[in-house]
Computed example of a mutant assay.
Amino acid sequence: MSFLEGALTTIALCWRIERRDGVTIGLTDHDRDLVVNGLVHRAAPGMTPSAIKRSDGLEADTMDITGALTSAAIAEVDLLAGRWDGARVALFALDWTGGDATQVPLGEGTIGAVETDRGGFTAELRGASAALDRPVVEATSPECRAELGDKRCRVAMAGRRRMARVLGVAEHVVTVDAVEPSDNAYGTGLLRWIGGANGGLQSAIAMSAGTTVTLRSAPALAVAGGDLVELIEGCDKSLATCAARFTNTVNFRGEPYLPGIDLLTRYPGA
């Protein structure tokens, strides 16, 4: 790492950002583009990291990244739509002259909270140790704690995903050209936007009826007729639905008959 020891340093900071939809970009604080491991890191002099807080204890490693909003790299509309939520980020330093190919890793993790203000943004980078903040043991619940189709639920999802075209949108209600296979089949499920301005995003479904699905929140961007979507069935996580609709009670991850804390408030004659 000779470039760190000379009288005149030639250090450039680089960011490699991989979105959950597979889009990967590279940015650098240098005044010209750099090619690192086959990826062009675009010059973004406004990108600056905060002090990197790292420890050998159990505290979560954190860092903030501040930068300018640009249409070519990170646009405000994409940040507000949630395209960058959960993206993986790697921050490293290198010699911008190319004389020393060694890279110095400075931090990596996933993007957490994002704030925008006056043409700029600040993104929180959560390190790997942030996972230690999560509960170790699950709390009991009358509802199933598994997600439909995951490795604990084990319901096959191949026949429970359907492609459809959007016919119209009225705020939270989306009308498609396919009829649901059963009553409220898509309730608590997901709608994945395949085409159009929302392509790559997904919306939570509150309920469905016939050819309409009601979203929990309006689409982030404008929707046009003919946009392609994928409808994924949902589950209300009750034992009755698990038995009647999915025949999957053997994998039910809940305690529907466990007395709740309301048992303490009961008394004879209540």
Rank of each mutant, 00 (worst) to 15 (best):
M1Q: 14
F3N: 06
L8A: 14
L13F: 09
L13V: 07
R16L: 08
I17P: 00
E18R: 09
D29M: 06
D31I: 12
D33E: 14
V35D: 12
G38W: 01
G38V: 01
G46Q: 07
S50I: 05
E59I: 08
A60V: 13
M63R: 05
D64I: 08
T66N: 12
L69D: 01
R83V: 07
D85K: 11
R88W: 14
D100G: 03
P105R: 03
G107D: 07
T110S: 14
I111A: 04
I111V: 15
V114W: 04
E115G: 11
L125E: 00
L125C: 10
A130P: 02
A131K: 07
L132F: 08
P135T: 11
V137H: 07
E138G: 10
A139V: 06
A139S: 14
T140F: 12
P142T: 10
V155P: 03
A156H: 03
G159W: 10
R161M: 06
R165S: 09
E171S: 14
V176W: 00
V179P: 03
P181T: 09
S182E: 13
A185S: 10
A185R: 02
Y186Q: 04
T188F: 13
L190T: 06
R192Q: 05
W193H: 00
I194H: 00
G199C: 02
G200S: 01
G200R: 00
Q202F: 09
A204Y: 08
R216Y: 05
S217F: 06
A220K: 00
A222R: 02
A222P: 02
V223I: 10
V223H: 00
L231M: 05
L231Q: 00
T241N: 14
C242S: 10
F246E: 11
T249A: 14
V250H: 05
N251V: 03
N251M: 08
F252C: 05
L258D: 05
P259A: 13
L263W: 10
T265I: 06
R266M: 11
G269A: 06
